[in-house]
Amino acid sequence: MIVGNRKDFSEILEKLGAARRVLLLGCNECVTVCGVGGEREVGVLASELRLYWTKEGETFEVREHTLERQCDYEYIDQIRGFADDYDVILSMACGAGVQYVAEAYKTKLVLPAVNTTFLGVTIEQGMWSERCQGCGACILDMTGGICPIARCAKSLLNGPCGGSSEGKCEIDKETDCAWQLIVDRLKESGQMERYEEILPVKDWRTGRDGGPRRRVREDLKL
């Protein structure tokens, strides 16, 4: 899923500026699962805004609304009837959702309330960790199912570097060394001979470096 962090309240206030009629828009997908922008988090942020503005003696209106998804036009369209009643749409979706809402409501100010961080997994309740960088040419078959691009601090295709120590990465003792994990995994699965192969220079064109990406499936088109 896509994981993010909520922005600090002070930053959100700053971005809102003088806007006092706020449509706070959540998303029911990834950001709900990682506890950053679903219905509940919308409720918390709305409550914070109400507490703050009441305290400040201001007049305001905060409407809470959570869409099934903010990355599909048909859902975004559902707020068409009342979006214009608000000064801003404050989106709690990932960066993709925020942008798609902005594309759909061209005259509206659409603000992000979330910092989108990574594609990852739930390690345990309340803890998530990065797994993929969407490089567009997956090599997990070569690396024991562990992605060195996303999980090695230097994205080394032929690691580990000299900083790997006791299973941890040189950047800090909290971070596993991806290459230790890869070697362990190759060993466990009887594929150590894979380690001897040099992974070739990567063609990054399939990744972000090749420019914004697009995917088309003619057979799915209407």
Partner: peptide
């Protein structure tokens, strides 16, 4: 829940 406490303050 967090929200319950916040509502009380509201």
């Amino acid at each position: 829940d967090v929200l319950l406490i916040l509502r009380a303050f509201e």
